[in-house]
Amino acid sequence: MQDNFLKIRNLRTYFFTRRGVVKAVDGVDIEAKRGKLTALVGESGCGKSVTGLSIMGLIPSPVGKIVEGEILFEDKDLAKLSYKEMADLRGKDISMIFQEPMTSLNPVLTIGHQVGEPLRIHSSLSPEEITERVLSILDLVGIPEPRSRLKSYPHQLSGGMRQRVMIAMAMICGPKLLIADEPTTALDVTIQAQILDLMLELMKKINTSIILITHDLGVVAEVCDEVNVMYAGKIVEKSDVFSIFDNPSHPYTWGLLRSIPRIGKKGKAKKLYTIKGVVPNLLDPPSGCRFADRCDKARDICREEEPPFTTIEEGHFVKCWLFA
């Protein structure tokens, strides 16, 4: 397990709101291997972004808090670092591409300034050297004529170009870990294909590991090595990408895969498989298995006791009583 350089153990991140405690991330274990692309996939509100923000130390305090767990990165537990220590790592060893592209680029600062910012914080390079590095990273992420773009503002770029700029900004210090939160969701498919291709290329060139947060199983199948399926604040299944698609075992994963229409499938299917019902409210999640209300295979024990993680084949884990 040498190569698990990020190991999250029993992470619980809660929000203490006026309506009650939102258990957004509730006992999550994730590991990321060096040089691999690890997916965190699940439906809206299941806790993907909160997991990413927890790793980054960016949970809005005091409403939100990591109440339990460890985030082991190399030899440190990020959950226990001070604000200052975390700030030293952020943007340098670990960086994140945020879900909302327009809110994470500053509209009144030039592209050149923003992309160079992490270097101004974390390095002692001269302004000229920084400009050179900015030009070379902009070139690397495929911005045509980067010199002429240094003075551009975010609104002068297309959505795809803005996403490239965000990737450049996240990559400029050569981070060991990049957390990419829905980096292509707002993009058109032809542009998405460009950006995914770029991320794979950069991962090799800069030797970065990536955690890709997405709700799109197509994207997962295209580029990821390892997959974590998240449901209502918990990881319910994890394995390498081939075993999970070939042998989806948790009823939720299985149902999710069956409910996506397959492109170009000859002979139109009459009906899509559907998972009944809706996701539970994280203010008051059901005890036992959180999927029980929607599961065709639910038994009494499912509603009473939380299922344990069970190994069903090497490296493939499922949190479900069917396998326990």
Binding site: Q192, A193, Q194, L196, D216, L217, G218, A221, L257
Partner: peptide, 17 residues
């Protein structure tokens, strides 16, 4: 460009615009 939810299809020749 449409992602296919099957990792066995990932090595197909992809046309990127």
């Amino acid at each position: 460009a449409v992602p296919i939810p099957d990792p066995h299809a990932r090595d197909r020749a992809k046309l990127i615009l």
